[in-house]
Amino acid sequence: MIEFASTFIVSAIQILLMLLATPLVCGIIRKTKARLQNRRGATIFQPYLDLSKLMRKEVIIPSTSSWIFRITPYVVLASMLLIALLVPTIFAPVPFHWMGDIITIIYLFAAARFFLALGGLDAGSAFGGLGSSREMSIASIVEPAMMLAVFTTAVTAGSTDLSIIVNRLSTTQASIIHPSHVLAFAGLFIVTIAETGRLPVDNPGTHLELTMIHEAMILEYSGRYLAFLELASQMKLLIFLSLLANMFAPVGMAIDTAPLSLIVGVAAFILKVAILAIVVALVETANAKLRLFRVPELLMVAFVLSLLALILYSIIGS
């Protein structure tokens, strides 16, 4: 019973921490981008302010929409929260790790995307359809690339359970690390850029119909619904960064609940995510938005790299 309660408490803490950290990561990326572009930029806490304002605003529901439009923000946010429960951040294994493995996580992302795309189509506007169509097309290459990239580590660790993967990679000697992990990391990094709607795939900052993808899908959302969707998409970014950080560099990961290792875990996590966030900002600054039909070529790189990672792992000296 105590174990059961502690499972819930630890999970609740994990979710709350992720929720609190989420807007901050977004703020850091925006601030870094601003500095790189010689702007002063808003404070890194701006995303919190934006969200709290949106929470209090009125929601406009299109008269043409059905109940799909109204449940979408909740389903999308809930999926992200559920994934946040399954992804190891500062300690592994997470209490609920037996509930779902990496395949589950990827399909939960797919579920969120499925509803988001339906929400885009529901209002009956051209923009929504445009966004949904582009999102699903891009996802059709990104999703397999992601799956292959994470399978490379899964096969290394002999399990698809994310916590077990991270645990194994952090406790065993360096010999378990294989050069194919570099390819997988590169693949997953491109996937991260694409999945979280960053430049050069999508531009989170504009509403230009020629380029927008994610923003087009959620164009009809406002008020609290928009706040939930924004939070969900920021959370997705944090989840991807945690995946990148912890699957390929599980340094400092807490593997027990001793206070010291937890503190080290928190510090390592913050450091790794901050570095990755800055790298994302750098990539965003250094690249211009690609034309939509050039995007698949970039995504194919991710797909081919991830596939090669898995093949190389399976055939070369393992």
Binding site: A110, F114, A117, L118, L121, A123, S137, A139, E143
Partner: peptide
């Protein structure tokens, strides 16, 4: 994996165009 992702795209289309919008 590619098949799964494409199937989702296809059913967003089939469901969305048939039942949603105007």
């Amino acid at each position: 994996a590619l098949t799964g992702a494409l199937a989702a795209a296809c059913f967003v289309k089939a469901f969305g165009v048939t039942f949603l919008g105007l």
